[in-house]
Computed example of a mutant assay.
Amino acid sequence: MEASQRLTKAFELFDAANSEDPNTEVFQGKTIPKELLYAKRMTAVLNEFEPDTSEALQLTARCQHICRWEIPRESYEMNRVGYLQWRQNLKKFHAKKASEILNKVGYEEELIERVRFLLLKKKLKRDEETQTLEDVICLVFLKYYYAPFLVKHDDDKIISILQKTWRKMSEKGQQAALQLDFSGKGKGLIAKALE
């Protein structure tokens, strides 16, 4: 199978897995499984932000939240420690799921290992592709999930989250974030967070 065919096949299998998500979101009048929509947004933002990227990073972006609903946040203690455990276990879970699918498609172990490395967010700030992935995750959050997030949380919490998000991003990612279209309140809180 050619590289482009393998990529297409892997995307199809990732999307089929994410289509099983019982959680849905209405987008442009259509009800779509939440993680399927998230995966497509990741690909779209990656293609915009870093169009000439490796196959490994394209694959990673598409499966970054694969089958996430299988490990609900509520299955861990609702505190900082529980949250961090949940996040760590999710990364390992996504890496395992993605590896199984990539194996099935016929990818070589070296590429599968690279996708695992990226999904585990290894060497953030030191590995260029891990950093690009993190930038894309942050941009997807800011572009699609920040506005609904604003109405659910108080300003102090939002400012704290924005500051943490900003610290994770590269300068290029931060510049791209500043080009996004935000509401008046959204823009104001970003300005406060960056003071």
Rank of each mutant, 00 (worst) to 15 (best):
E2A: 11
Q5V: 13
T8E: 12
E12V: 02
D15A: 03
A16V: 07
A17H: 04
N18S: 07
P22N: 05
T24M: 10
E25N: 13
F27M: 13
K30Q: 15
T31M: 15
P33C: 12
L37H: 14
Y38V: 08
A39E: 13
K40C: 06
R41D: 06
V45F: 09
L46N: 03
E48A: 08
T53C: 14
T60E: 04
A61I: 06
A61E: 01
C63M: 05
Q64L: 12
Q64N: 14
H65A: 08
H65R: 15
W69L: 02
E70Q: 14
M78Q: 13
R80Y: 07
V81S: 07
Q85L: 10
Q85F: 14
W86Y: 14
Q88C: 01
L90T: 04
H94C: 07
K96R: 15
K96V: 08
E100R: 09
I101F: 02
L102Q: 02
N103W: 02
K104G: 05
G106T: 02
Y107S: 03
E108I: 08
L111C: 02
E113W: 05
R116V: 00
R116W: 01
L118E: 01
K122E: 13
K125M: 06
D127I: 05
E129G: 09
T130I: 01
L133R: 01
E134F: 07
Y144I: 00
Y145C: 01
Y146L: 00
P148D: 08
P148A: 07
F149L: 04
V151K: 15
V151P: 01
K152E: 12
K152H: 03
K152F: 12
D156M: 13
I159C: 15
T165E: 08
W166N: 04
W166H: 11
W166L: 01
E171G: 05
L180I: 00
S183W: 11
I190E: 02
I190L: 15
K192P: 01
K192W: 02
K192L: 14
A193D: 11
A193L: 10
A193M: 10
E195L: 12
